[in-house]
């Protein structure tokens, strides 16, 4: 996929959000994410990083401002297979859930199925391709709960990849992943970004690590306090 770094994938315009009427969690945030970007959203705990991610995914609606995905207003956007999402694993995931690796990845294809549409060869091929990209095809018949934290995270990436998205959002993806596996996990993200041209938005509190990986750092602490290259951030 040819990458056009001038093309806007996400545009946030003067976003403010509050969970209740009292205090804004996000205030006047304006930010554009371009095709092929690899951007790290950093900030202290409770600074609104995940909230900002949820705004970009239309899981919550900001009280003020505009969000555009692929130049379409987010309320009118319905091309969600162009977007992949890997949530904070620890929060959402039941290790006893009876699902094999390939079933989990296949779920990614199910959201866009019409009534009575069956799982096709195309779906199975997409699952295989996604699992191969993350190096987990051999594990396809194992139960998701039997895998290590790092392997599970790869499966969730594969589920996000299965619809060939142009952008993937990852929320604290390395939580519960040990140091050695973190390295190969970040190598995988580099591969997705460089070789496949997938735009990545990564939320993390591990600023030190992010500065070695991403192209841009966006600091969120209620407002957008910086939007710089890693070199500028460190300077």
């Amino acid at each position: 996929m040819p990458v056009n770094h001038d093309k806007n994938i996400i545009e946030l315009e003067d976003i403010s959000f509050a969970y209740d009427e009292k205090e804004n969690v996000l205030e006047n945030i304006t930010l554009a994410i371009h095709q092929g970007d690899y951007i790290g959203l950093v900030g202290p705990n409770g600074a609104g990083k995940t909230t900002l991610l949820k705004v970009m995914l239309n899981l919550i609606s900001p009280q003020k401002g505009r969000v555009k995905l692929f130049s379409t207003d987010i309320q009118d956007f319905n091309d969600w297979q162009r977007i992949g999402y890997v949530a904070q694993k620890a929060v959402n995931f039941d290790v006893n859930f009876p699902a094999s690796v390939s079933e989990v990845v296949l779920m990614g294809r199910w959201a866009n199925k019409k009534i009575f549409q069956k799982t096709t060869e195309v779906d199975r091929a997409a699952v295989k391709e996604a699992l191969e990209k993350v190096g987990m095809w051999e594990q396809r018949d194992r139960l998701i709960g039997d895998l290590s934290g790092g392997q599970q995270q790869r499966i969730f990436i594969a589920r996000a990849l299965v619809n060939h998205p142009e952008i993937i959002f990852l929320d604290e993806p390395t939580t519960g992943v040990d140091q050695k596996n973190q390295d190969s996990f970040y190598a995988l993200l580099q591969k997705l970004n460089r070789n496949f041209g997938i735009t990545l938005v990564l939320v993390s509190h591990d600023i030190e690590r992010l500065t070695q990986e991403v192209m841009h750092i966006a600091c969120v602490d209620k407002t957008l306090t910086c939007h710089v290259s890693p070199e500028e951030y460190l300077a």
Partner: peptide, 23 residues
Amino acid sequence: LGIHYKPLVYITFDEEAAKVSGV
């Protein structure tokens, strides 16, 4: 159930991700 089986499995496993993908 037959009509909704697939998205039901998806929201049972991961409601937020399912929501993001348009379920």
